[in-house]
Write a protein that binds this DNA or RNA. Structure first.
Lengths: 211, 211
DNA sequence: CTAACGTTTGTCCAATCGGTCAAAAATTTG
DNA sequence: CAAATTTTTGACCGATTGGACAAACGTTAG
């Protein structure tokens, strides 16, 4: 009798080892890109031999694909939570904050995604033009409603979302540059709080002086 | 008698072929990353055999290094032009516009740079912590002056620069995603004008409704 | 012409790559 | 316990990689 789970039946060891491999692969892929990473590197990072790794994932690409699919789901969670119920400005502010927290807490996921997009998204293009576009269009409609209601300034909802993605993910993807420019003092752990303060002000008030 | 140029003396053919190779390498490196690109690919894109390419650049890394150094110079030109003479808001607005134009006209350069930073900037780290930091610190001082004079709102100058970099380069580095989300209609050539309009509004007024 | 020099290429090499395979080792099952 | 199954590994393979090299080709100067 089938337990209800679909196609691949897995033992406890398989579950654990697969997680171990995915964790190691995330580390390697996110810093060297897909082609820049080798199975040996991932195997060593996971503490096992290459053939052993290939026992759990038969091809290098399978690891990457599993990683990408799992990532996309959690990566878009903050946007999915953007809801029509609360105060628009508060909703947007907390969306920005949550995205920035993800850049701080999951920089490897951000870099893995950035690597894929940079190279033309050869493996997830259908998802971008499909699920992602649908989700963004849906949220753009919500934002448009806020604009019509006079709750936020009239502007382009799609580019607004892009700008939130760009500014927050920048602190994960370009982290080395951010830290190099800020220097040892301001580039420490406090940089994310500084960024949060700045982004809040930018998105709410812009740069025009008060009055 | 020496003509005045430094160490490597070069013939006309060498000049031309080297440019040809660099152009081809920019195309290849920017879409596949350093490790993801092969000398054969670059040679083919440049219309010559691999040994012939290696006659002009002895190592793959030499091509990449030449490309990076040349890039950084032109890449930071807009920021260097940010000057204390004009009206602050106008200066910032034209800086944003110029950076966005560079993302539109030189997306490969942007992606090449992004690739390098994403992987930890192993080849240009000293430049980031050196020349780049110096330049940004200098401009941050200028911006601080504007704030003290009440010309623009008080905020963090470094993160302001980061946000301009992030939002503008996003349209080069994440171009596939931008076009996929905007769809065939709005993702056409007009997307950069839409982005320019949006960014101007964002950086000047933010999202708060007027009044 | 020929010698000298710059350019181009076919061939080759060692290293690394993703992936296979059979056999050993460990674990689970009865 | 022993049999069956799952897990692990050493050895190996063909393909691709960055790069070396000498020979061929082209051009120019005397």
């Amino acid at each position: 009798m089938n337990t209800g789970t679909e196609v691949p039946r897995r033992t406890r060891i398989q579950q654990e080892k697969r997680e171990l491999i995915l964790e190691a692969a995330l580390e390697v892929f996110s810093t060297h890109g897909f082609r820049g990473s080798t199975i040996d590197q991932i195997a060593e990072a996971a503490g096992m031999s290459k053939p052993n790794l290939l026992y759990y994932f038969r091809r290098k690409e399978d690891i990457h694909e599993t990683l990408m699919l799992r990532l996309l789901d959690t990566w878009l969670a903050p946007l999915r939570e953007l809801d029509d119920i609360g105060d628009p400005l508060t909703e947007l502010r907390s969306y920005i904050r949550r995205k920035l927290e993800m850049a701080r807490d999951f920089p490897r996921e951000s870099r893995l995604f950035a690597n894929e997009i940079l190279q033309g998204a050869p493996r997830i293009m259908p998802l971008l033009a499909g699920d992602l576009k649908t989700l963004v269009d849906e949220k753009a409609t919500v934002i448009k409603g806020w604009m019509r209601a006079g709750k936020i300034a009239r502007t382009d909802p799609w580019h607004l979302i892009f700008s939130i993605w760009a500014t927050t993910q920048h602190y994960a993807d370009f982290d080395v540059q951010v830290r190099a420019v800020l220097g040892p003092n301001r580039g420490g752990d406090g940089r994310f709080e500084d960024a949060a303060r700045f982004l809040e002000q930018l998105f709410l008030d812009g740069l025009k002086p008060k009055g």
